[in-house]
């Protein structure tokens, strides 16, 4: 055995040993307390990873059940739908379009700069007069302070990971702060769902690949964007240029 015992244990559990090596490991395991401890730790690590990272459909369903009961037992004021948020949205969308057109301007050279639209984080008003954590995150986000926005969104997301809006903006801040792989992963989840952010997520993933120069991946994500959605036109244009 040339390698350290931890690596050896990992290779044993992952089935990366030959038959002879396997036998050697098992024989030594009988008497080697350190090795036994490593194996036990390894099993624990596997369990923890499963708990933290593996998809768990029942847990998701449970969280929905809890969400429903929460509003019943913790006495929330029901959200009142007023025109105000709609106007906010509309003006926000107009602003995004304006910014989009501006960034889109064909005289710019770099494709990423042309097509990357970080967008404004729009938060529908919840009726409460005081500023919520989400509002704070939105104002950081809209000022381009992604690191600050990220730390708030991270907390909100950890409490409400089913929320597509939170997931989407949290993922955007991850991308903006260099946690690219994690951001893409989360956006993929959003894309696989059926929320309003589905194609925004696909577009954001495409942009992240454009940024890193991975054109094939970028294209394949752009192609997922359905006709008639916000980013469709930009996506088709960009595919041609690539």
């Amino acid at each position: 055995m040339a390698e350290d015992k931890i690596t050896w244990t990992a290779r044993f559990v992952e089935g990366d040993l030959s038959e002879a090596e396997m036998a050697e490991f098992e024989a030594q395991l009988q008497t080697d307390a350190e090795l036994q401890q490593h194996l036990e730790n390894y099993r624990q690590l596997q369990q923890n990873l499963r708990q933290q990272l593996a998809p768990d459909a029942v847990r998701e369903a449970l969280q929905q059940t809890l969400g429903k009961l929460n509003s019943q037992y913790f006495g929330h004021e029901t959200q009142v739908l007023s025109l105000k948020p709609i106007i906010k949205w509309a003006s926000g969308i107009a602003a995004v379009l304006a910014i989009g057109l501006f960034i889109w301007a064909p005289w710019r050279g770099n494709l990423y700069q042309q097509y990357h639209v970080p967008g404004q984080m729009l938060v529908a008003e919840r009726g409460a007069a005081s500023e919520t954590e989400l509002d704070k995150a939105a104002s950081f986000y809209n000022d381009g302070k992604y690191a600050e926005a990220k730390s708030i969104l991270e907390k909100l997301y950890s409490k409400d990971s089913q929320n597509a809006q939170l997931s989407y903006y949290y993922a955007q801040t991850l991308l903006a702060t260099g946690r690219v792989e994690q951001g893409r992963e989360l956006l993929t989840t959003v894309y696989n769902g059926e929320s309003a952010f589905k194609y925004d997520a696909a577009y954001a993933i495409a942009m992240s690949y454009l940024k890193t120069g991975q054109k094939t991946e970028c294209k394949s994500w752009l192609q997922k964007i359905a006709k008639g959605t916000t980013h469709y036109q930009k996506a088709t244009d960009l595919i041609q240029k690539l």
Partner: peptide, 23 residues
């Protein structure tokens, strides 16, 4: 406030779920 209580309660139940299922 009630929002905090709600968060804590839900988190606790999910923790219990996780422990029961994975540990």
């Amino acid at each position: 406030d009630a929002n905090d209580a709600e968060d804590i309660f839900q988190e606790a139940l999910v923790d219990v779920y996780n422990q029961a299922k994975y540990k």
